[in-house]
Design a protein around this nucleic acid. Sequence first.
RNA 1: GGAGGAGUGGCAGAGCGGUUGAAUGCACCGGUCUUGAAAACCGGCAUACUCGAGAGGGUAUCGGGGGUUCGAAUCCCUCCUCCUCCGCCA
Length: 425
Amino acid sequence: MLQIDFLKNNKERVLNGLRVRNYSEKDLGIVDQILALDEKRRAIQTSLQQKLSERNAISKSIGELFKQGKTEEANNSRNKVTALKEEIAHLEGTLKEVKRALDDALLSVPNIPHESVPKGNTDEDNEIFKPYEGTLPALDENALPHWELAKKYDLFDLELGVKITGAGFPLYRKKGAKLQRALINFFLDEAEKAGFEEIIPPLMVNEDTARGTGQLPDKEGQMYHVTEDDLYLIPTAEVPLTNIYRNVILNEDDFPIKITGHTPCFRREAGSYGAHVRGLNRVHQFDKIEIVVIEHPDRSYERLQQMLKHVEGLLEKLELPYRILRLCGGDLGFTSALTFDFEVFSAAQKRWLEVSSVSNFETYQTNRMKLRFKEGKKTRLAHTLNGSALALARIFAALLENNQTPDGIVVPEALRPYTRFDIID
RNA sequence: GGAGGAGUGGCAGAGCGGUUGAAUGCACCGGUCUUGAAAACCGGCAUACUCGAGAGGGUAUCGGGGGUUCGAAUCCCUCCUCCUCCGCCA
């Protein structure tokens, strides 16, 4: 959620930012609506506070008068306050309404894109930030997509998932299960080497938490909701990890806070069907190692670059061909200011698969979460960043496809200490 | 799930209807003293909103929400969390 002061002082910047997100001139009216609501709120609040102040003063004097035995004067004052009370109740009512309208309006405005974010409507318009340098691996004609390979080597089973749960809940087995576990440990170890503290968070979160990172109110459809207890299954570890610091005031020397966690991720994503979502390309449950950083605002973009390097390192160790995209305004997530997507080339499907998304949210999440730090006497909002390092299902798919040989699927060197086998056959 | 108890500032802990944003201790920061440190002493030490050019005011916050009252940390309702005992259980 944007800060109202920022909006007030940088109106042009906000408007231009929304234009990058393809807001029409008509939709931009929301900004003026917000400013008007804020003005209204302040006016009401000021007069309310005056009345409250008056009430408090009189009430205080009543106590004094009773002590002195001046009952009559005390009763006079009492009547005065009774009259005030009505005004106060009325003002409180309108204040609440206006605040609510303001809040709703503010929540409906996405983050302002970083100046480097290109204009564009869809993922077609994303900028190739770092192209793949090399020749794309070419497999021979009868190379199999991962869902076929999975059948051939009995690595995962979607039909069994259907039986147990429903579509999109894969069941891994044999060397598939081992590879899965190897990847998890590999990614966690690499994150630890890079200075991230490993955390195993709860997989269900309450409403406040979901709101803090921006899953609510607008994206509730993407989360599984346990209505009986009003809890949400996490769509990513970002949610519980970042919310550790909800309502926290840090010291300046606490930065950077670097945490990581492996969790299953649950996504409802009212799905489409077809080749693009076959196999593990899009599932309702997948494992992911997430890295989360809470950083000083002056250093967050530097940190974002470091996070990119970390993810690059992982893909290089796994010997997967990748490229990095800078998302355009139209494809940029609601809460993000700048996002880089990593894509891995799947040789068998002959397409790029998104395997990681690394973003700087600036103060958008921290404003909702009230995550601040002390800067001298004042408090200031911190920046949050996060990235997948990495998401398993698609990496798993790409590994199977790209490394297939007539003899089996070759495990990349870096992973062998974890799998304890060299080949899947 | 049943029965009881409790939630106050960074921590400990008073207050249980009236100048209490909240005693006191500890922690922390600044100062005096000291060659330096400790001790001692003095001072400071929440957050948000709001008015004001500023100095400085005001409002709200004692787990959350609602209510009673001229006035609530104090009384009532409700929710949440924690503790003790019983039951169930990996």
